[in-house]
Design a protein around this nucleic acid. Sequence first.
DNA 1: TGATAATTGAAAGTGGTTTTCATTTGCTAT
DNA 2: ATAGCAAATGAAAACCACTTTCAATTATCA
Lengths: 151, 151
Amino acid sequence: MQADCFDNALQKLRKRGFKLTPQRRAVLRLFCSDDARHLTAQQAHDAIREREPSIGLVTVYRSLELFTSVEILHRVKFNDGFDRYERHPGAAGHHHHLVCAGCGQVVEFGDCLIRSMEQKLEKTSGFCIEGHWLELIGRCPECRGRAKEDN
Amino acid sequence: MQADCFDNALQKLRKRGFKLTPQRRAVLRLFCSDDARHLTAQQAHDAIREREPSIGLVTVYRSLELFTSVEILHRVKFNDGFDRYERHPGAAGHHHHLVCAGCGQVVEFGDCLIRSMEQKLEKTSGFCIEGHWLELIGRCPECRGRAKEDN
DNA sequence: TGATAATTGAAAGTGGTTTTCATTTGCTAT
DNA sequence: ATAGCAAATGAAAACCACTTTCAATTATCA
């Protein structure tokens, strides 16, 4: 749990006139904890209910939407149909995701090689490129080991 | 309409024991036409109904699913929530999509720069990378012009 | 401390896609 | 040709992640 993360977010909400409810604090607390990464709304709801059993899934959805709109969180549309949320990376934190096809764990990586591809493409297509979306799918070391055993 | 495309697909279905119904022929005919690219199920249904008014949307979905499973078509999960289908690119035809944020038109491009990124990442992460998914979002020349006029 | 507008939770709604089920239809063996 | 049968179709209902509605609650401020 990073205290700055939590306090900065609270201040951001207060400054914009949003109410600081226990439910919103609970969602913030979760995403400011060190191990909360790439959570789906359902996963976040499950985690929060351990401390706050009465919180509704709908409220989690609404909090995630609100926090995304004020750039406290960042919404990532994964190809499995579940949106995921992570702390907003800020100006310098652009990255992509490597997802394990076996266990679903997610590893982040930078986008060092995409910019040059975009520049080439802008010349050949005439498009002005505004953003990109990259996801790699693979198998983590543990799941590769397990696959070998199964054979 | 490319005759080989159509005939090859029919033969593939027959070989695997699937029935050659008028509905399946109609879906194949559409996707073997030269201008059919990146169609959603709804778009395909609309197009097919002009010649085959009685075909149901459900049957189109089922045909697209079947053709994807036997690698006649390729399903692309776009971030706008609509799956799109295109002719299966075969061994050498791997590519990605550049989507115009204004009009939605789609341009394909090769993936020349991704392999080297993947190799680097396999070393640092220990993952065995099995696939990737890349979509660029931009604005085509026409939509850029229109945006200027509006200002 | 009370007024009030925002927030919450439960239930209902959305929209793309899939499943169910009764009917129809290609295909194969006669 | 044609009967028999499994596979395919169409319509309606179900699915499922997510969003909206609405009445009840609550954080904030005068």
